[in-house]
Each structure stands twice: as structure tokens, then as C-alpha cells.
Design a protein around this nucleic acid. Structure first.
Lengths: 117, 117
DNA sequence: TCAATATATCAAGATATTTCGATTTGTCAA
DNA sequence: TTGACAAATCGAAATATCTTGATATATTGA
């Protein structure tokens, strides 16, 4: 982690498309989808596991998983007749950077990368 | 900014209500509202200024400003016959912390505060 | 091949959100 | 007090999203 102050022009900056931000935030704005993401904290889950744990219908979960995938918040991996979903942390990082830019007046209309682990 | 490592039990933690997260993210999921937030980067704006700049109807802007205010993303301040809106950075920080928790396996179901300026 | 299982997709209805125009409320200045 | 202006609210129409049940696709094992 970089600790010394750097000049503005060499800061890491990410230009964030508002259409993508809206899509990501929309994906995060539903209780079922937040519950799915919460289940994925502990690693990959197949749809059938999520159906069992969340008590939601299979087509409903497929619908929400597609929304999360289209937003880039999750990835899917096919394994035989199962599909495993997992968190895509890059997108979380990108949206965090976008939101952080609202707390940093000097960054005007662009987002600044932060929170790197 | 704290630079030394701290033990997990004394980390700052924020329990985030999924209902509030959904409300905040919903507020962030609309192009008009993102445009409003972008205008507020440079400080307070009254509704009439936003109407001029964004080219949207007044009732439409009032509707979206209410959505943003209910989500805690903006504050309003009455000044004579004008109402000035401004960014509420605390809520941005809270939602960033919530999102960051998905990138930190050890935090399980709670969000960790980060990105403090 | 056939039956069972996992997942995706579709259509239709239910629900929620957004937009617009009109009205209302509150403030100020003449 | 009156007229003008800023902003919020309301009802109705338009649009988008979510849920459900049915069906389609793909994979596996018998």
C-alpha cells in the first residue's frame, strides 16, 4: 500500500460510465440479490444450493443471478450440469472507487481507485 | 490515516441494514439522480439551478431529490424561498464500507469501515 | 437410449417506478 | 395585500421490474 503523497497527475484514476454505475447499483438494490451476494461471501455456490438456502423459486434465482452477472458483480463457471456463481471483486472495487470520488472534491468528475487490499 | 495493522476485534465495524443498502443503491441506480449527484460535487445547488443545468422538469427533479434525500445521499437546507441540496458524504462512506466487505472474506456478514479521508 | 436433474428462458400477470402537467404551499418584494 | 417565484405534492399514464408456472436445453448415469 502506497503511503506517501503523490501528485494529482500520477494518481490512479478510473473513468466510470454512468450507465454501468446505474446497472451495478440497480443490481445491488434488491433484497433477494443482496441475499445471494451474502451467501457468496463464503465462496462459490451452485444455483440449487441457493434455491435451498434462500427458499426462492429456481426461475426467480436464475433471473436475479442473470441481473448480478450482467452487472459484473458475479461470475459463473459451468461444472457438469451445475453452474457455480462467485463474487467478482473487481466490480465491487470499481463501484467503491466511483462512490469514494464523491467524497473527494479534487477529483471532480472522475473516480479515484482506493481501498485496495 | 492509520498505517499499522490492528487486531480484528478492534477494527471499526458497521452493521449495515440490507433494507437501507437496497434503498441507497436504488437511489444510485438512475441516470437523472447520478447527474444530480455529479452536479453537487462542486457544492450546494438549489433546485432551480439543477432544472437549468440538467434540462429536466421541476417536479421531476423534486421527485429525484426526494429519493436521494430519503436514501441519505443528500441533505437539504432551506434558504428563503430556495432549497439547497448538498452531498451527504457519511452515507457514501457507509455504502462503500458495505461493498468493501464483500472483498474481505474475514469480515463475514459485517461491513468494515475503510477509505477514510 | 432413456429418465432424472440442473439451469435458463419465456409469457403473463402483479407490482413498482418514472414522467408529466396541474395544483398547492411558502417566501419575498413591490 | 398582491403578484411572482421556488419547490413540493398529487393523479394519471407510461414504463420497468419482479414473480410465477410452464417449457426448453444440456448433462449425467443407468
Amino acid at each position: 500500500m502506497r503511503m506517501t503523497k503523490v501528485a494529482p497527475q500520477i494518481r490512479i484514476r478510473l473513468k466510470v460510465d454512468p450507465v454501468l454505475v446505474a446497472r451495478i447499483c440497480h443490481a445491488l438494490s434488491d433484497a433477494t440479490r443482496l441475499a445471494i451476494l451474502d451467501r457468496l461471501r463464503n465462496g462459490d455456490q451452485c444455483v440449487c444450493d441457493l434455491v435451498d438456502v434462500l427458499g426462492a423459486g429456481q426461475s426467480r434465482l436464475s433471473f436475479h443471478l442473470k441481473t448480478l452477472k450482467d452487472a459484473g458483480l458475479v461470475r459463473d463457471r459451468k461444472d457438469g450440469r451445475w453452474v457455480h456463481y462467485s463474487l467478482n471483486t473487481e466490480t465491487f472495487l470499481a463501484i467503491e472507487a466511483f462512490l469514494a470520488s464523491f467524497r473527494k472534491a479534487e477529483d471532480a468528475t472522475e473516480a479515484q481507485a482506493c481501498c485496495k487490499t
